[in-house]
């Protein structure tokens, strides 16, 4: 009973997350679609947390090897996704010397 209940709750979580993703992303202008893709790429890098949890509980060499690979790949996903997204977004600038520019400067400085 307990497991079937958790599975139902999981479906609720999936449904809500899917709608959230759809709504949030459909507002992103196409000009930012490449950073969006690498940014969402970065976000699914949270799988590294799952890989870490799995590696911590490893009890034999095989599990340690697979866990190590999982964390290695996950860490690459996180770090790479973050760095390229940050690099690309930093390049997007509005036309110079407009009031909007000052606002952007303030935001990026903080």
């Amino acid at each position: 009973m307990l497991t079937s209940m958790t599975f139902i709750i999981a479906l609720y979580i999936f449904m809500l997350a899917a709608f959230t993703g759809y709504v949030v992303i459909s507002r992103v202008p196409s000009i930012l679609h490449t950073p969006l893709m690498s940014g969402s790429n970065f976000i699914h890098g949270i799988v590294v947390v799952g890989a870490l949890t799995a590696l911590f509980s490893a009890t034999n060499v095989m599990e340690q090897v697979v866990g190590f690979l999982g964390v290695l790949l996950g860490a690459g996903n996180v770090m790479g996704g973050y760095v390229v997204t940050d690099r690309m977004l930093a390049m997007f600038r509005p036309s110079t010397k407009k009031p909007a520019q000052a606002a952007t400067d303030k935001k990026t400085a903080s």
Partner: peptide
């Protein structure tokens, strides 16, 4: 999607949410 599903396997809702948000976003794109 894979991350979302493994999040369920590991009972980690953060993975489920992050994975499914990306899954939906990716489908749209």
């Amino acid at each position: 999607l894979a991350v979302g599903l493994e999040g369920y396997v590991m009972s980690n809702p953060a993975l489920m949410i992050a994975g499914m948000v990306v899954g939906a976003a990716g489908t749209l794109l």
